[in-house]
């Protein structure tokens, strides 16, 4: 589903590479934790998948497509196959829960009938049934993240990228969010989650990829956060 073939990334004007000779292959339906200190290259890894940047060298394949071959105007098509969730939720504060989720479908030109059918389904999946008309900024952090996940998942993406999704949440709420991500993963969605949260990684026991200074130092099935 995602393949990094000897990928390096050096940002313009910087000497140090953000990623160095990364070779990673993530299969369809896998759940992968991306761990490492701040600045170790986790975010760069995510952004390369989204094709926000191009790698300095090497090739990246996402959902069967070579990203270096994708034309600029085809990038939106790629992003429709990838759902993205962030630490800071990135909701639209003036809109309701329903509108926030529907937004992702509206702006990609889906018909109104489909929106009315799909959005309540997804809101039920993330456990926000009955909250459709609440304003997004009135919700608790955990609920806001559920809205964000609903928005990322409503387009039925093949891949879900989560960048520190539990970073702003307390441990109990985090457990709920992880259960939700697990449920989405069981629906045959590949999940890649960058995190600092050792507890979460240790509980889930999924594949762990660790980055230090832009290099992959560990790739472990059913791994834990620490290196012990």
């Amino acid at each position: 589903m995602i393949t990094f073939d000897d990928v390096s990334k050096v940002y313009p004007g910087q000497k140090k590479a953000a990623l160095r000779h990364v070779n990673i292959s993530i299969d369809k339906g896998e759940f992968v934790f991306l761990v490492g200190a701040s600045g170790s290259g986790k975010s760069t890894f995510m952004r390369l998948i989204l094709r926000e940047y191009r790698p300095t060298s090497g090739r990246i394949y996402v959902a069967g497509k070579d990203l270096s071959q994708i034309r600029q105007w085809k990038v939106p098509d790629l992003r429709r196959q990838i759902g993205t969730v962030f630490q800071d939720f990135r909701l639209l504060p003036g809109k309701t829960v329903f509108e926030n989720v529907a937004f992702a479908l509206q702006v990609t030109g889906r018909p109104m009938a489909e929106i009315r059918r799909t959005v309540p389904e997804v809101l039920e999946l993330v456990g926000l049934k009955g909250r459709e008309t609440r304003m997004a900024d009135e919700l608790s952090g955990g609920e806001q993240q559920r809205v964000a996940i609903a928005r990322a998942f409503v387009g039925k993406p093949k891949i879900l990228l989560a960048d520190e999704p539990t970073g702003n949440l307390d441990p109990n709420t985090s457990v709920g969010i992880m259960k939700l991500l697990d449920r989405i993963n069981r629906r045959n969605t590949t999940v890649v989650m960058a995190t600092h949260d050792a507890t979460v990684v240790d509980q889930m026991r999924r594949r762990v990829i660790e980055l230090i200074d832009g290099q992959v130092v560990r790739d472990q099935k059913k791994g834990v956060y620490g290196t012990d």
Binding site: W73, P76, D77, L78, Q81, T84, L92, T108, G109, G155
Partner: peptide, 17 residues
Amino acid sequence: RREIGIMRLVGASNSYI
């Protein structure tokens, strides 16, 4: 810009934005 950022993220086409 916030809205535009989200639009780009979820794959809205440039012409739509």
